[in-house]
Design a protein around this nucleic acid. Structure first.
Lengths: 232, 232
DNA sequence: CTTTGGATAATTGTATACAATTATACGATT
DNA sequence: AATCGTATAATTGTATACAATTATCCAAAG
């Protein structure tokens, strides 16, 4: 019975294929499955206690996300994520987060603005206290608010995907207390620009925010994770 | 006939699910399935002569692409593409095509440069002759070359997706002879900037190229296609 | 007439069976 | 010993069977 008492998030109420999808993706991003590893349907099915059907559905999704490559009648192979991939994603994100901040400036609702201000306030508090977990969560949430506020289903979708993609790498980064504080300051500036309806400034700040996050990540932590996979 | 060595998407394989995926996507993009339509697994399976299994796999992919929404135990509903979506995609693409042109400037190979020059040359020829089909193909190919030349798997993937997404809308646009000629000129300028290793200029030109393509599209053709779905 | 209850049908979710394809093992031939 | 060919096993591709859930219909109650 203890097996079923394990705490599950409400949003984990997915279909089996959905759970399998998230599970495998996490395992690829975690490094459990490494580049060029072959994923076998039965093995993964048994590991997760499901049949091949949901596993195959998950495979198709992972293929579309570019995390695995399915070779017909042969197998599914992990594509992995190289150091250069991460770098490219951050460059792409910096442009799109900038655009998002601009659009958010034009479309943000009062409720969203209020939540953003609250987010900044809480982040300051938890930064003082050294509550890294809450800080990471608030950081995520800040970006989520912006994604919602930009009022663009397409852009929101893109940014959310990228966000997920580099989430693991970002975790480490934020546990650096200095970057956490600096990140908060940058969020606050972005928020102020949005509040002041200064789209140009919001865009530039959000753009720079991503570049800073990337540069900080490169300085500490990325090498040990991706050194063996580095291509460039 | 022209070349077949054009790089294809992974899902273009000969598996049933791949075919079903492309089939449904095409039908959504060309309006056979409209917004909020419910897609039933057996109906589509029978129509394409396959069982539910490949249909379901295709559904999962379509959901990830944002073309349909799967409500657990209920059904799959077409999300559709609004006029605002198209506009947003073009804005996003303009940024990413700019980045792509910049990176292509830094990474393009001699072979790719040669093909790009050949592409420009052929485009001029077919524009003179009024060969719209070849012109559209060459236009697609020009962008494909840039996507490959940028040397970024991530960016290439993103741009290819967007490109596919708006392909149908673009078809009409290019059949406007004036836009076709203007587009060619812009391609040539981008090519020249890349050849001259002027990344800034290449980026700015590619950026503007997308904006122009969008503005032209809005001027003629978009309304009749998306008028009934327009939200804004 | 509207509402409600439940039987029935339709649809999706999952597992399994079977076919097609590919990988592996192993002996025969050279 | 190396290579080839074939039998066998392993794996993926597809279809189907069964379970779970949701939608529909219709009669009876108010």
């Amino acid at each position: 019975m203890s097996k079923y008492d394990v705490k599950q998030e409400v949003t984990d109420n997915f279909s089996l294929s959905g759970r399998v999808f998230h599970n495998i993706r996490e395992d690829i991003l975690n490094g459990k499955y490494k580049e060029n590893d072959e994923l076998r349907e039965v093995a993964i099915g048994e590991e997760l206690g499901v049949s091949r059907t949901p596993v195959r559905e998950a495979f198709r999704q992972l293929e579309l996300e570019g995390l695995i490559q399915i070779v017909p009648n042969k197998g599914a192979y992990v594509t992995g994520i190289t150091r250069k991939d991460v770098q490219d994603i951050y460059m792409i994100r910096s442009l799109l987060e900038g655009l998002c901040a601009r659009w958010a400036t034009e479309n943000i609702t009062e409720e969203q603005m209020a939540e953003m201000e609250e987010n900044i306030f809480l982040s300051k508090f938890h930064a003082e206290k050294g509550h890294y977990d809450q800080l990471a969560e608030l950081d995520n949430r800040f970006h989520e608010i912006m994604y919602e506020a930009c009022n663009s289903k397409m852009l929101e979708h893109q940014l959310r995907d990228f966000h997920q993609y580099v989430l693991r790498v970002r975790k480490k980064t934020l546990s650096n207390v200095n970057r956490g504080r600096k990140s908060n300051e940058e969020h606050e500036q972005i928020m102020e620009a949005i509040k002041a309806k200064d789209g140009d400034r919001a865009q530039a700040l959000a753009n720079a925010h991503m570049i800073n996050a990337y540069n900080n990540m490169v300085k500490n932590g990325l090498n040990e994770d991706f050194g063996e996979k580095a291509q460039d």
